[in-house]
Simulated scan of single mutants.
Amino acid sequence: MYSFGELRPDERRAGLHLLLGGIDDPDRNETIEAGLETMLAAPHDHLLIGARSGERLSAVVWGTRSGDDSLLVGDPGLASGLVDADEAVAGIAKCLADAADRLGLVLVQVMLGPQRIDLAPCFLSAGWERATRLEYLAARIGPENEPIDRREVDSASDWRWVDADSLAPGALQRLVAATHEDSQDCPFLEGRRSPAELLATYARSSESGTALWRVLLDDDEPVGCVLAGLQGGGTQIEWIYFGVARNRRGMGLGDRLAEHGFAQARSIGVGMIVLGLDESNEPARRLYARWGFRVWDRRLVLLRWRERPSSPLL
Results as ranks from 00 to 15, higher is better:
residue 1 M to V: 14
residue 2 Y to R: 06
residue 6 E to W: 00
residue 7 L to K: 03
residue 9 P to L: 07
residue 10 D to W: 13
residue 12 R to K: 09
residue 14 A to N: 10
residue 15 G to S: 08
residue 16 L to Y: 14
residue 22 G to P: 12
residue 25 D to M: 05
residue 29 N to H: 12
residue 30 E to F: 00
residue 32 I to R: 03
residue 32 I to N: 02
residue 33 E to V: 05
residue 37 E to I: 07
residue 40 L to Q: 14
residue 44 H to N: 10
residue 49 I to H: 01
residue 55 E to I: 07
residue 55 E to Y: 09
residue 57 L to N: 03
residue 65 R to Q: 12
residue 70 S to I: 02
residue 74 G to W: 05
residue 80 S to V: 13
residue 83 V to M: 11
residue 86 D to A: 13
residue 92 I to A: 03
residue 93 A to I: 02
residue 95 C to H: 09
residue 98 D to T: 13
residue 99 A to D: 02
residue 105 L to I: 10
residue 109 Q to A: 10
residue 111 M to V: 04
residue 114 P to L: 10
residue 123 F to R: 01
residue 125 S to F: 03
residue 126 A to H: 05
residue 127 G to Y: 07
residue 128 W to D: 03
residue 129 E to I: 15
residue 130 R to I: 05
residue 130 R to A: 14
residue 133 R to M: 12
residue 133 R to Q: 13
residue 133 R to Y: 14
residue 140 R to E: 10
residue 152 E to V: 12
residue 157 S to T: 15
residue 158 D to V: 10
residue 159 W to A: 14
residue 162 V to N: 04
residue 163 D to I: 00
residue 164 A to N: 06
residue 165 D to S: 15
residue 166 S to H: 06
residue 171 A to I: 03
residue 172 L to E: 09
residue 173 Q to F: 12
residue 181 E to L: 14
residue 187 P to Y: 13
residue 188 F to G: 05
residue 190 E to P: 00
residue 192 R to G: 08
residue 199 L to K: 05
residue 202 Y to R: 05
residue 204 R to M: 13
residue 206 S to F: 04
residue 216 L to E: 10
residue 216 L to C: 12
residue 216 L to V: 14
residue 217 L to Q: 08
residue 218 D to N: 15
residue 220 D to I: 02
residue 223 V to G: 05
residue 227 L to H: 00
residue 231 Q to Y: 00
residue 232 G to F: 06
residue 234 G to M: 09
residue 244 V to M: 10
residue 244 V to I: 15
residue 252 G to A: 10
residue 254 G to V: 11
residue 255 D to F: 00
residue 256 R to E: 06
residue 257 L to F: 07
residue 259 E to S: 12
residue 262 F to R: 01
residue 262 F to H: 06
residue 266 R to S: 01
residue 272 M to D: 06
residue 272 M to W: 11
residue 273 I to Q: 09
residue 276 G to Q: 08
residue 277 L to G: 01
residue 277 L to I: 10
residue 278 D to T: 03
residue 282 E to H: 06
residue 283 P to K: 01
residue 283 P to C: 07
residue 285 R to K: 14
residue 286 R to I: 07
residue 287 L to W: 02
residue 289 A to I: 07
residue 290 R to G: 08
residue 294 R to G: 14
residue 296 W to N: 12
residue 296 W to C: 11
residue 297 D to F: 08
residue 300 L to V: 10
residue 301 V to M: 08
residue 307 E to L: 04
residue 314 L to N: 08
